[in-house]
Design a protein around this nucleic acid. Structure first.
Length: 523
DNA sequence: GCAGGAGTTGCTTGG
DNA sequence: GCCAAGCAACTCCTG
């Protein structure tokens, strides 16, 4: 006979392995375990969520439900605002305890604080755990005297002081009888995992699923990518040397699983460590370990810098007078820029939900400081909708990086929408795959088809300006203009900095940004 | 306070 | 095909 319920609340961390909060719920004596996932309308109301993303989520929830049923419980998917549905469930289920994984995003922090308050008022015990990243961002910042590390090398130094990340925890293998739910709960269809149609996704309009969601899929992918047979690939991995336009991904594509937490970063880290052990291997930042550390680096910044996903009010972000041209943004987002390399990447993104890291560089640079001079925030929103792995912190951080708004400042190093792709795909096979209307162009013109003589265009069956757009901007012209604008914006920032210093003795950011993580405010 | 070196992943030209 | 230099020159960190 049990005397109440313990809820484990799944949000990210859609897995059984390496899930300390779930294990804590299971350990709670004499309480029935009811694992919950909340379909929170906030996400739909406040951001566009693409069909591929919904599909990945549904697959992950189905897998989770299946695994939980094998343990003698199930996933309870509830629909509604977290504070409302949880209050109802706490009463209905006689909840005594709740556990969840710490989430560092602003909305999540606010939401969780509310729930914690609710729990206290209802006499419900709450236990939370950090397990989405290798290190707890708060600990990293604490180790750096309360300052957010703003360079990767600095981050590495702090992590060296903290030592290696924790080992992953094993998944639960069984539940005590008291933890199991009554069999009548197993059939309650109102808690079933939603179908795609319930989520207003037209499945028939989606492209074939290349990267399925779910813990089992994720762990299988991890095994396929990271194993002793591939030891030399694992040990020699250098991110900048992988190809952005390979026809099948040159990297592991584990990022969607890390984003949803269907694969734990720590299990990934330690699996790599096992293969590294005693052997010569590449090093951070370019190694596979290095990739996981980038994730922690950006998570730490995202968790502690104010207004991290915006330009205004963000103490680490350069203030740049970006243009606001919806047509340019739309052309970029819908693969109509007239630059085949850019349009092929954006086509792959929309269809498949994943593009290579360097492909992201190319299109992000193109949209912002390179060619179209549009705000990185608008590009970030498009990625948020389309990328399976769009993690709030990483997405904002990388967009700031590529637009030379933060972290990276060498704005005169600019990707060419023509030259960059040629290095790894001189024949343009990648372009031909995603933009079949250009497939018959000779290699010579595949990256700049507008330069092909009309006879060549006719022979290729594709007239530029009719069957495929002309370039919306002239790269060789705008790239110079934009570098000039960047210089101006940087100089204006410096002037504003010293101006503020002159007037108040303080530096920029101190008056309007109260973040204690802005190292500039510390004099 | 200042100089010098480093910073995941540029492009073009010339040898 | 490879490598180095020039492009015009950023910020952060360290000593």
């Amino acid at each position: 006979m049990t005397s109440g319920t313990v809820i484990h609340w799944f949000r990210k961390g859609l897995r059984l392995h390496d899930n300390p909060a779930l294990l804590a719920a299971i350990r709670a004596e004499d309480l029935t375990l009811r694992p919950v996932f909340i379909l929170d309308p906030w996400f739909e109301e406040n951001s566009k969520v693409g069909g591929n993303m919904w599909r990945f989520l549904v697959q992950s929830l189905e897998d989770l439900d299946e695994s939980l049923r094998q343990l003698g419980t199930r996933l309870f998917v509830v629909r509604g605002k977290p504070n409302e549905v949880l209050e109802k469930l706490i009463n209905e289920w006689d909840v005594k305890m709740m556990t969840w994984e710490i989430d560092t995003e602003p909305y999540s922090k606010e939401r969780d604080a509310k729930i914690e308050k609710l729990a206290i008022s209802k006499d419900v015990k709450v236990e939370t755990f950090s397990s989405h990243t290798l290190y707890n961002p708060e600990q990293v910042v604490a180790k750096n005297k309360g300052e957010t590390p703003l360079t990767y090398q600095k981050m590495l130094g702090i992590l060296a002081l903290l030592g290696p990340p924790s080992r992953p925890l094993d998944p639960p293998i069984k539940l005590e009888k008291e933890s199991k739910i009554p069999s009548s709960d197993l059939d309650k269809s109102k808690y079933d995992v939603p179908s795609l149609s319930e989520l207003n996704v037209k499945e028939e309009e989606l492209f074939p699923c290349l990267y399925p969601g779910g813990e089992k899929e994720g762990l299988q992918r991890l095994d396929e990518q990271i194993n002793m047979k591939r030891a030399s690939w694992v040990r020699n991995f250098e991110k900048p040397k992988t190809s952005p336009n390979a026809l099948s991904p040159a990297t592991t594509v584990l990022s969607p699983h890390l984003r949803f937490g269907t694969v734990s970063a720590r299990i990934f880290y330690w699996k790599l460590e096992d293969i590294y052990k005693g052997s010569k291997r590449s090093q951070p930042p370019v190694s596979l370990h290095g990739q996981l550390l980038w994730r922690d680096f950006f998570y730490t910044a995202g968790a502690t810098v104010k207004n991290f996903d915006k330009m205004k009010g963000n103490p680490i972000c350069k203030q740049i007078p970006w243009g606001d041209d919806k047509e340019l943004l739309d052309a970029w987002a819908h693969a109509r820029t007239g630059y085949p390399f850019i349009d092929a990447i954006m086509t792959q993104l929309r269809r498949e939900g994943w593009i290579h890291h360097l492909a992201r560089h190319a299109v992000a640079c193109f949209l912002t400081r390179g060619d179209l001079w549009q705000s990185w925030e608008s590009g970030k929103e498009v990625f948020e909708e389309l990328l399976l792995d769009a993690d709030w912190s990483l997405n904002a951080a990388n967009w700031m990086w590529l637009s030379a708004s933060s972290f990276f400042y060498q704005y005169f190093r600019c990707y060419s929408p023509i030259a960059f792709g040629k290095k790894t795909d001189p024949d343009g096979s990648y372009i031909r795959k995603y933009l079949p209307q250009l497939a018959k162009f000779p290699d010579k013109y595949i990256y700049q088809p507008w330069e092909a003589p009309l006879a060549v265009q006719k022979a290729a069956g594709c007239i530029i300006g009719t069957d495929y757009p002309r370039p919306i901007v002239d790269h060789s012209v705008v790239v110079k203009d934009n570098m000039g604008k960047m210089k101006k914006a940087y100089d204006a920032g410096k002037a504003a900095d010293s101006g503020k210093k002159d007037i108040s003795g303080k530096r920029k950011g101190e008056d309007d940004v109260s973040s204690n993580n802005d190292k500039k405010t510390k004099k």
